[in-house]
Design a protein around this nucleic acid. Structure first.
Length: 583
RNA sequence: GGCCCCGUAGCUCAGCUGGAUAGAGCAGUAGCCUUCUAAGCUAUUGGUCGCAGGUUCGAAUCCUGCCGGGGUCGCCA
């Protein structure tokens, strides 16, 4: 159960009951929220209802609040209602409601927090989409983790999510890749090679060269490029995608759809169809573009070209679709790609890109608006750079020989849990410092550890209970029967309140496309648990396990179990493991 | 020059789509280990929310204009 959603419904009903003219006024009612008050002393729930509707009703907010208050005095879950400030309504709930929350967690387990707010809407999350020219480097890692956590979150919140990877396998860079692989092929056949600049120099192509020898023997040798380029390209692309998938697997990331750009090209392909369609709609014309102000490219050539009327859909300028050599621009393919998403039935398209593509957002938005007739929503999320540090010092990355720090390097050193959590413990559009030393540290300064430790501590409490009170039944069934009425101290209520807000957190994070909120929530919940645990040190009556009070112990264990379950659910959404014990 | 992102405590950052007296961690200061894991906790110091206007019952949050930092700017992907 989500008590905030529950009361939002009740407040809305109460408003309509008191002011029938509000009936059907969805836009006003939508602004009414029920949230936890900033100051817990104000109560358990707070609503702005009176402030929101006062003006349209032409009434004084406090009058409206008073009307609502009388309505809620009859509510069996409400202990007291109080009007505060300009017209806020603060509710203090009866203790039982928190006990109901705990009971519902015990019942729902992994589904506590799962919701239907997405209403089954089809969402396509496109992320990673790293060029298949080599292994993934750290720059890709953030987008990979972000997209993956977002996909999990949305799916948990009731959206119908597809995780998709767009393979940029059609551009000139993959020709360069193939040529680089061909060099390694010749090397594998005993030739001494030199790698010209502009080629991919990485060592990861050496095994590809050997594999080419195994597949083709020396039959590609002394052939013109036209003979070997296609087969080598096909082979090396497959090899690179395997490399990338291996990297992603290290972070437990698996896409459901790999969409090849190449399949859009060619006669009768989707790009052609899309451009024909756009032409029919009148969204394409032949024209000239102004050179960008303030910075005219060296080789600027004023020519007439095929343009998409992006500016008609909110973009700054119209965008070219065909290069001077007659081939399609990347954007032309991207329009076709996004059209394919729309045609496949997705109504929300999420693109996760690196911050260096930030100028691309308005173009995508324009394209999606055009190809969907405005019916599809698009959200382009940008991931900022990750600065790698070691003990506070920036990690030097030598670009020579393409030797960047790879995703595999990071994950091998700190593990998938820490990598994922740290990258999610920051808003995606804010730059992030990733300090190897901190991430491996087992102290409270390390948020990954701090949260995982809270979870392990929950298990530790259970282990202690079994050791100290072996005759006590702490099975899930026994916990369901616990006398929760014994949980009434302010610390216990605070914890129950916190886990009671979990469903609301999930829904809000999903709507905002912001998985980092979950990471912060978990950190806060962990802090509350640690604080409560520490109080038992000073005051033994506050311990979870009390040998002289088995009934209270069972009740407290039920609370610990609720916290544990929320930590498990939250870490699960972030793709971070929840160990029962830390080594 | 155009466009996008950012600017909140000494540092690193949250701030729940406009709510009440702006929060947390680190650092600083003062405490807590015969006690469920001190791998932790408590207290305390610290802010013209970059600046100036505007919108309204109410702005860190929305709008406009500046200042500062980053990114990007037809035929790269």
């Amino acid at each position: 159960m989500d008590i905030f959603a529950l009361f939002e419904g009740r407040v809305s009903d109460a408003l309509i009951a008191s002011f029938p003219e509000l009936e059907g006024n969805a836009d006003i009612l939508a602004r009414v929220v029920v949230e936890p008050p900033r100051d817990p002393a104000h109560g358990d729930l707070s609503t702005n209802a009176a402030l929101v509707v006062a003006k349209p009703l032409g009434k004084n907010p406090r009058e409206v609040a008073a009307a609502l208050a009388t309505h809620f005095e009859k509510d069996e879950d409400v202990a007291s209602v109080e009007i505060a400030g300009p017209g806020f309504l603060n509710f203090r709930l009866k203790l039982e409601i928190w006990h109901q929350v705990l009971a519902s967690i015990a019942r729902l387990k992994g589904d506590y927090g799962r919701s239907k707010v997405g209403q089954g809407e089809k969402v396509n999350v496109e992320y990673v989409s790293a060029n298949p020219t080599g292994p993934m480097h750290v720059g890709h890692t953030r987008g990979a983790v972000f997209g993956d956590a977002l996909a999990s979150l949305l799916s948990y919140a009731g959206y119908d999510v597809t995780k998709e990877y767009y393979i940029n396998d059609a551009g000139s860079q993959v020709d360069t890749l193939a040529r680089s692989a061909y060099l390694r092929y010749r090397e594998a056949l005993g030739e001494a090679i030199e790698i010209p600049s502009g080629f991919y120099p990485g060592d990861y192509l050496i095994p590809v060269g050997k594999a080419l020898v195994e597949e083709f023997g020396n039959s590609l040798l002394d052939q013109p490029e036209s003979a070997w380029l296609a087969p080598v390209k096909q082979h090396v692309l497959a090899a690179m995608m395997e490399l990338i998938k291996d990297d992603l697997r290290k972070l437990n990331i698996e896409h459901e759809v790999f969409f090849s750009e190449k399949t859009l090209h060619g006669a009768g392909g989707e790009i052609e169809k899309t451009l024909a369609w756009l032409r029919d709609e009148g969204f394409i014309y032949e024209g000239r573009l102004e050179p960008p102000k303030g910075k005219t490219p060296e080789d600027w050539e004023d020519r007439e070209q095929t343009l998409f009327r992006a500016s008609q859909f909110g973009d700054d300028v119209d965008r070219p679709l065909i290069k001077s050599d007659g081939s399609y621009t990347y954007f032309a393919a991207d329009i076709a790609y996004h059209r394919s998403k729309v045609l496949r039935g997705y109504t929300t398209l999420i693109d996760v890109l690196g911050a260096d593509h930030s100028g691309y957002a308005s173009r995508i938005a324009a394209a999606v608006k055009a190809v969907s007739g405005g019916t599809a929503k698009v959200d382009v999320r940008f991931c900022q750079l990750v600065k790698l540090l070691r003990n506070g010092e920036p990690v030097k990355m030598s670009k020579r020989s393409g030797d960047l720090v790879t995703l595999a390097d990071v994950v091998d050193e700190v593990g998938p849990d820490a990598t994922r959590f740290m990258l999610l413990f920051r808003r995606n559009d804010a730059p992030l410092d990733f300090d190897f030393a901190l991430v491996k540290e087992q102290t409270r300064d390390n948020p990954v550890f701090y949260v995982q430790y809270a979870h392990a501590r929950c298990w530790s409490v259970f282990r202690n209970a079994e050791k100290d009170m072996p005759e006590l039944d702490v099975s899930p069934e026994a916990l369901l029967e616990a006398d929760l009425g014994l949980l009434s101290s302010s610390d216990e209520i605070e914890l129950m309140r916190m886990i009671g807000s979990w469903p609301r957190q999930v829904a809000a994070a999903a709507r905002a496309h912001e998985p980092h909120r979950l990471a912060f929530y978990l950190h806060e919940l962990a802090a509350l648990l640690h604080a409560f645990w520490a109080k038992g040190k000073e005051n033994p009556s506050l311990r979870f396990v009390n040998q002289d009070d088995p009934t209270l112990t069972v009740a407290r264990l039920a609370l610990v179990d609720g916290v544990r379950q929320v930590l498990v659910n939250g870490l699960g959404l972030l793709g971070v493991s929840a160990p029962k014990e830390l080594s």
